[in-house]
Simulated scan of single mutants.
Amino acid sequence: MGSKHSRVLSVRLDIHSERYSDYALSSEDMTRIIENVKRQTDSRFKNGKNDPDLHVVWVSEKTTSDDNPHYHLNIFVNGNAIQNGYLIKEAFNRAVKKKLDTDNDGLVNFSSSNGKMGKFIERNSPDVDAQMDDVVYTASYLAKTRSKEHNPKGSRVPSSTRIRKK
């Protein structure tokens, strides 16, 4: 992303299924949610000068074997198009609510590790290395092994969207 855009915004979100519900979000549901958010974001900013170029790395996690899976996401967008991570959070919130057919706004959480709006990497900044390290540290939460041992055997735990080279 940094080679394509001079500013990249990184946002970490957590997505849960509704408590006490018989339906839990699956990996396929997450793929559809991400596709919907990407489509919404692209159409919302299509007349702008900058393409949002949304990309997601995500991982499923189960706290116990009886628990429903929840998902940790790190989203990267063109920081020249989107400067506030809450716009991304709200797009995911709408897509999750639609998928689960609910009015519950508490299923998508904006991680406190994002700071106020998300984390920026500015390619031309003298602090670019520190910014990159900060984003990598925040995103490293997705790589933790604790609580992934309860995922079903053979399941694909991490996933991501593809970044096409220009």
Rank of each mutant, 00 (worst) to 15 (best):
R44G: 11
A143G: 05
T102I: 02
T102E: 06
I33Q: 07
N78E: 06
T64L: 08
K49N: 12
A95V: 05
V59A: 11
N104C: 11
D14Q: 13
V96W: 00
D67G: 15
S140T: 03
N124S: 09
L13C: 05
N50T: 04
N36E: 11
A139I: 01
N151D: 12
S21R: 12
T41L: 13
D129L: 08
K166G: 10
V11I: 14
P158D: 09
F120W: 07
L107T: 10
G48Q: 12
S6G: 13
M1T: 12
R12P: 03
K46I: 06
S160A: 15
D42P: 00
L142Y: 01
V157C: 11
I33L: 04
S125K: 06
T31W: 01
G85V: 02
N151T: 08
K49T: 13
L73T: 02
R162Y: 14
D129W: 01
N124P: 00
A81M: 03
P52L: 03
S160M: 13
V37C: 09
E18I: 04
A81P: 02
S112C: 02
T145A: 10
L107E: 07
E149W: 05
S17K: 02
A24R: 03
T41A: 07
N68P: 13
I15M: 11
T138D: 09
M30H: 03
V157Y: 11
T31E: 12
I163Y: 12
V59K: 03
K98D: 13
N47D: 15
K38Q: 15
I88G: 02
V56Q: 05
T161A: 12
K98S: 15
D101S: 14
D127N: 14
T138I: 03
V57S: 11
V96E: 01
I33C: 06
Y23K: 14
K144P: 09
T138N: 09
K148E: 04
D66F: 11
K49S: 14
Y137V: 07
I82M: 11
Q40L: 03
S26K: 10
N78W: 03
K4G: 10
K148P: 08
L100H: 09
I75Q: 02
V56T: 14
